[in-house]
């Protein structure tokens, strides 16, 4: 007596089940398909770069326009450029994020700040490059070099830090703040004792991701003093700190750009070598950000 089984599915339920299965498999296969290009890019670059990668390659000087030698100069340039950018943009971005999320009243002025931040985030990096050239070099009369390049990168990454800081801060429930205010804590005391300690991880993650972004950019720095070749001192402290604040500099992203398109007869492994180093650097930084996030999720306190 199969018809009396109260659990026999209706035609509608059968149809519903098959559509549910279809939806799950479609979304799953598209997600898996995403992995393919990533895996291909990484494998291809790794294979082609393999002949070049060695300790002397990382620590050697660029010679014959990048066709021989190593990438020490560009590597150091990228390192100092991103650190400098970080020193400039992190305090400004975090403080602005704190103001917008914690203090700013909901009015036209605040909304116009937010529109400005969003617009800034949408500006193409080549336009940032022209802005940096116009503002810092042409108008303020600063020399093209490490500092002005870092400042240009800072303007570009500012909205990213502001937005990630805001998101981290707004993750702290509002009723914690209200409880503190009712206990007679000032807004600043509340921010310092409750809000920041509980959003620090999110803020830090945003800051780390900005390093990755700054390290990979080419357009904003190529007008700002990034050059093809500079002589690097062979030893001594200047080997580790090859550039002054106002000096021209080499950088990995720019190096890769130039050797890939401007120099004829460039050996394949030299191009892919610097691509692999740049990529590894950025993936490494992103990895740190993920670890920080993971660590903080584990010790979430509410």
């Amino acid at each position: 007596m199969p018809d009396s089984n109260p659990f026999s599915p209706s035609p509608y339920e059968l149809n519903k089940e098959s559509r549910a299965t279809l939806a799950e498999w479609t979304t799953f296969s598209i997600s898996v398909a995403l992995l393919i290009p990533v895996a291909l890019i990484l494998t291809m670059i790794a294979i082609k770069a393999a002949p070049a990668i060695s300790w002397p390659y990382l620590t050697g000087d660029v010679s014959r326009s990048g066709a021989a030698g190593g990438i020490w100069g560009p590597l150091m340039g990228t390192f100092y450029l991103t650190m400098l950018c970080l020193v400039i943009v992190a305090p400004i971005g975090v403080l602005a994020g704190i103001y917008i999320n914690e203090y700013a009243p909901d009015n036209k002025f605040t909304r116009s700040i937010m529109v400005a931040v969003t617009s800034l985030a949408g500006v193409p990096s080549i336009v940032h490059a022209l802005f940096g050239l116009g503002a810092f070099v042409a108008t303020m009369g600063m020399p093209k070099g490490l500092l002005t390049a870092a400042m240009t990168l800072s303007v570009m990454t500012l909205p990213v830090i502001i937005t990630s800081t805001r998101e981290a801060l707004s993750g702290v429930p509002k009723n914690f703040r209200e409880a503190c205010w009712n206990l007679g804590a000032s807004r600043w005391q509340t921010i310092r004792t409750i809000v920041l300690p509980n959003s620090f991880g999110g803020i830090l993650t945003g800051v780390i991701l900005v390093i990755a972004r700054a390290a990979g950019e080419t357009a904003p720095i190529m007008f700002m003093g990034a050059v093809m070749w500079l002589r690097i001192a062979p030893s001594g402290p200047e080997r580790l700190m090859p550039y002054g604040l106002n000096d021209e500099f080499m950088a990995l992203s720019n190096h890769l750009n130039l050797i890939s398109k401007d120099i004829p007869g460039m050996p394949e492994e030299m191009k892919f070598g610097s691509a692999l180093v740049l990529l590894t650097l950025i993936l490494f930084i992103n990895g740190i950000a993920s670890l920080v996030r993971l660590h903080l999720r584990r010790r979430k306190r509410w």
Binding site: N175, F176, E178, A179, C180, N182, L183, G184, A185, S186, Q189, T193, I194, N198, R301, W302
Partner: peptide, 24 residues
């Protein structure tokens, strides 16, 4: 002030109670 929904601050029980005195 005590509110409708209990709010334990994300810190130890001790620090919760000592919070306001410390801010003073």
């Amino acid at each position: 002030m005590v509110f409708p929904l209990p709010v334990g601050l994300p810190m130890s029980v001790y620090d919760n109670v000592a919070y306001a005195p410390r801010r003073m």
